[in-house]
Design a protein around this nucleic acid. Structure first.
Lengths: 197, 197
DNA sequence: ATAATATACTAACGAATGTTAGCGGCAATT
DNA sequence: AATTGCCGCTAACATTCGTTAGTATATTAT
């Protein structure tokens, strides 16, 4: 009988969720079947249900673990005593690094949250809306300070967050620049587009 | 018997494809069923097959009609005799307007092309890769001209294209700024992030 | 009016889906 | 050594899926 291998102090459930992230990214949540996931894990489909309640539960776990990380970070950044541009840069660098290092999860959370079901769906949407408002508020402050040029803050947020999701393409590209260069390039373009000069 | 209504010189097939675009955007390609589509069109599922060959054919039509519009545009822009920054701005404005006006199709083409099947899949991926290379080449020229600051051109392309796909959020937001403002804001931030100063 | 074509319907298909029930074996605790 | 709980298995389930066959009706052309 083939048990699920657990390494690095991961529970079997965490192994499943982690493999699911990869699978959901590759095929999309709906197209990825529990039998696909079982094969990736090295077990029969029914066996997965000893560890998880449902397919959707896996998606919950992925979406909310990602969302929580971003919420904690913005708490931290808001509390700091620096310029708006600095705060934005810190948030962006965090986003970029999350996307580089936890690619699968972040990507799935970004693209597949639609398949959550209530009450998780509304919950997630709320968190997302609030996060963006807080991000926009930082930009607003920067505009009032004349650190940042007069632009529509929600539009700026939307551009930044979506731009970062483009790291997806970087991951898949054959000729990657290295991660540090990627980060610096993105910061240069995105922050450069905001600041007053 | 409920016939499919055709207005504005659309064929019945075009009506189906158009309704499918909306549905695929809302639920995703895999999650949207032919029965859903039939209901949106006002007909039984089997009746759709008098007009289309398969569900996947609808996706082909959507993806390639969008891709072709962008390819024609970049042909046109490359041939012009202006600065690199001007060319980029023109491409960006085209992207932005396509996303504003043909939202459903462009969005579906962007997010659901994975579900194409070969040979269409490889074909689409090729076109996409080539498009991005041509876009990057314009930026490279601008860098050599000193119009544009020294950045990694493929990264810049990736940022721009993904940033524009954020217009999705604008469409769904309750407090929209108007389309012209959106366009100007996006251009200001994106082009502002590129240029030398 | 009649014939031909286009388009819709009902019924059904095989395949794939998420999930449950029930059983058996492995591993740790007593 | 015996017991308990964890975990994987096979088999099966009810749905839903895309699609086809065959038939009826509506529209267009003659």
């Amino acid at each position: 009988m083939a048990r699920i291998k657990t390494e690095n102090n991961l529970t079997r459930k965490e192994v499943i969720v982690s493999k699911a992230a990869t699978l959901f990214r590759e095929k999309g949540f709906k197209a990825a079947s529990m039998r696909d996931l079982a094969e990736a894990v090295g077990v029969e489909a029914a066996s997965l249900y000893n560890h998880i309640k449902s397919k959707t539960e896996i998606l919950h776990e992925l979406c909310f673990s990602v969302a929580n990380r971003f919420l904690h970070k913005i708490d931290e950044v808001e509390a700091e005593n620096t310029s708006s541009v600095n705060k934005i840069e810190k948030l962006l660098r965090f986003h970029i690094n999350e996307m580089i290092r936890h690619y699968e999860e972040v990507y799935v959370s970004d693209r597949e949250w639609k398949h959550l079901s209530d009450p998780y769906l509304s919950n997630f949407q709320n968190q997302r809306r609030i996060y963006r408002k807080r991000f926009a508020a930082i930009i607003e402050t920067g505009i009032n300070n004349h650190e940042i040029k007069k632009i529509d803050a929600p539009t700026a947020v939307l551009i930044m967050l979506h731009a970062i999701s483009g790291i997806e393409s970087w991951h898949r590209s054959t000729q990657k620049i290295n991660a540090e260069e990627l980060e610096e390039n993105m910061i240069s373009i995105l922050v450069g587009g905001l600041v007053n000069r």
